[in-house]
């Protein structure tokens, strides 16, 4: 009886993960294909990786996207942490409903709407105040911060609400000022949430096609924009090579992050046990 049930569960898992991973694995597999026809196997080759690194258009776009993603992630983490802190710790304040709404709405808003509305803002503002002069890196970065600060805020908020306030209260009772409490107590505790928020903001920015297409200007094509224009014409093996590199980097990053967090958790549990034991 129990065996039958676990067999059913196992088949759910196998089916679900096969669906999630077969497409990704097929990209990796065919990136080593000698044949130009992506899905006809013509022998093992790393030719497309070489081609990829000769393609200056892709390399330039990748460098641009990485820069935007890094600035965006940093800005979004700062603003998102403040927003998460306000939502989790400040109770009711004036305009909280609107604030909470502005935080959650970008998470589900269709990208075409966000992109169009931001572009119209930039155009109107350039018309009225002369800023921003044209569109490019700065407008893409602003647009991405607006989108991703919500993700950081939600992560930070949920970490803070699951956190015991007694530590912060104890520090406050001992005379620490709020800013000091935040820097010395709260910030170190929520730092894993900040790291995952930063990484999430980074990848979302690196990945965004629609919003960037709306708010970018001539000469500032991000990596997704270049990939999209290539992919529209059909499959091309150097894109498979690019995909393989990106998938490997992400997998490596997630593995390292998971390992570090697991280690930290274990260490914390040990500390807790020691502290409670000596009590």
């Amino acid at each position: 009886m129990n065996g039958k049930r676990s067999l059913v569960r196992l088949s759910f898992l196998v089916f679900g993960f096969a669906f999630l991973y077969i497409p990704i694995l097929s990209l990796v597999f065919y990136s080593f294909n000698k044949s130009r026809l992506v899905t006809v196997w013509g022998g093992f080759s790393t030719e497309w990786y070489g081609r990829l690194f000769e393609n200056t258009q892709i390399l330039d776009a990748a460098w641009l996207s990485l820069r935007i993603a890094a600035i965006n992630a940093t800005g979004a983490t700062i603003l998102g942490t403040l927003a998460g802190l306000a939502l989790a710790r400040f109770g009711r304040f004036r305009g909280r409903t609107l604030f909470a709404g502005m935080i959650t709405a970008p998470l589900v808003m269709p990208e075409v709407i966000t992109g169009l509305s931001l572009l119209l803002l930039f155009v109107a503002s350039e018309h009225a105040f002369g800023w921003p002069e044209g569109r490019g890196v700065s407008t893409i970065t602003i647009a991405h911060i607006t989108l991703t600060l919500s993700y950081v805020a939600v992560i930070v908020q949920s970490r803070l609400s699951s956190l015991d306030v007694s530590l912060e209260e104890a520090a406050m009772d001992l005379g620490a000022r709020p800013a000091k409490v935040f820097l010395l107590i709260t910030l170190p505790i929520i730092s894993p949430a900040l790291v995952s928020g930063w990484l999430l903001a980074f990848t979302i920015s690196l990945d965004d096609l629609v919003i960037a297409s709306f708010v970018s200007g001539p000469g500032s094509s991000t990596l997704p924009m270049v990939i999209f224009s290539k992919v529209r014409l059909g499959v091309s093996p150097d894109i498979n090579a690019l995909a393989t590199i990106m998938v490997s980097l992400v997998t490596l990053g997630v593995l390292i992050a998971g390992f570090v967090m697991l280690h930290r958790d274990r260490a914390r549990q040990r500390d807790m046990q020691l502290a409670l034991g000596s009590d």
Binding site: P23, T39, L199, D207, V231, G234, A243
Partner: peptide
């Protein structure tokens, strides 16, 4: 994990399939 890899490339994978 797939969510962390490029959305665009995951759509692209289905073209080949």
């Amino acid at each position: 994990l797939p969510f962390w890899t490029s959305f665009l490339l995951r759509v692209y994978a289905w073209i080949g399939i």
